[in-house]
């Protein structure tokens, strides 16, 4: 399971403040903590006004890359912003994200052509987020075919079949699972990802719903997730799932995480 650490995101109030004040110590602390907890990539999202975003992202990228050896997941709704900050990345990471909206693919795919960069592709288009499975699969196909034009193979794509809030669609998880399975059947090497916490928006006990979602999504074949690896319960669920799904021989990763205090009681 590929973990993309989500904590450095300007929509989180404390992070927003640190970005506004250019508090490098706070941001590098978040990067280090996520790396120690087992993140494979560090998501950086400025979440600021568009005119400030390039500046903020460039600063974030510098701070994070000085703090940890991990590759970045460059996160912006604006493809032009990603294109401008992209040259500052020191390692091949993940672009977050393309979709079938506007000319996102046309701007971002050429950027990573001929590199080892990966790309997150959201299954939405100019009509918005589809409510059904079939449209999600159709958009995923478009994203894959467009990627092929730039020599980007499916194994470099993380498709996010955009889970809808369960509170407003009681079949949301079922649709996510169906879309995941169909997309994987079409392109076996492709990766499926999810932002995870959207499922529980507007519900009480969100952490329980999120963990159950993680479990079912992993069972359905989800390969990566954008989450907080410092959330011990979530990480414990993730590692237990890895073991249950046969990816942790002798359960040693689980036991090691427990021994080192990454999951379970702080020791």
């Amino acid at each position: 399971m590929i973990i993309i650490g989500e904590k450095i995101n300007g929509v989180i109030p404390a992070t927003k403040q640190a970005i506004a004040e250019r508090d490098g110590g706070y941001i590098s602390g978040l990067a280090v903590k996520q790396a120690e907890a087992g993140a494979n990539y560090i998501d950086v999202c400025a979440g600021t006004d568009p005119e400030l975003e390039v500046d903020a992202l460039q600063w974030l990228m510098g701070v994070v890359q000085d703090a940890v050896e991990l590759p970045l997941c460059i996160d912006s709704p604006n493809p032009e912003v990603i294109a401008r900050v992209f040259p500052l990345a020191r390692r091949d990471g993940i672009i977050n994200s393309v979709s079938a909206e506007g000319n996102k693919c046309g701007i971002l795919y050429p950027l990573v052509q001929g590199t080892a960069w990966q790309v997150i592709g959201l299954t939405c288009d100019d009509r918005g987020v589809p409510g059904d499975v079939q449209t999600r699969v159709e958009i995923a196909k478009q994203l894959v075919m467009k990627a092929a034009e730039f020599g980007i193979a499916p194994d470099r794509l993380h498709i996010d079949p955009l889970v809808i809030t369960l509170a407003t669609d009681h079949e949301s998880l079922l649709k996510f699972v169906a879309a995941t399975r169909e997309i994987k059947a079409l392109y076996p090497p492709i990766k499926i990802t999810s932002g995870l916490s959207n499922i529980s928006f507007g519900m009480p006990l969100r952490r329980v719903v999120n963990q159950s979602f993680l479990t079912m999504a992993m069972f359905a074949g989800m390969d990566s997730a954008i989450l907080d690896p410092c959330n011990q319960e979530m990480l414990a669920t993730l590692l237990a799932n890895e073991a249950l799904l046969g990816r942790d021989r002798l359960c040693r990763k689980f036991a090691n995480a427990y021994r080192s205090g990454r999951i379970g009681q702080k020791r």
Partner: peptide, 10 residues
């Protein structure tokens, strides 16, 4: 209780 069954097999 520091090591578990899997660790023992390992």
């Amino acid at each position: 209780g520091e090591y578990f069954v899997g660790d023992l097999i390992f």
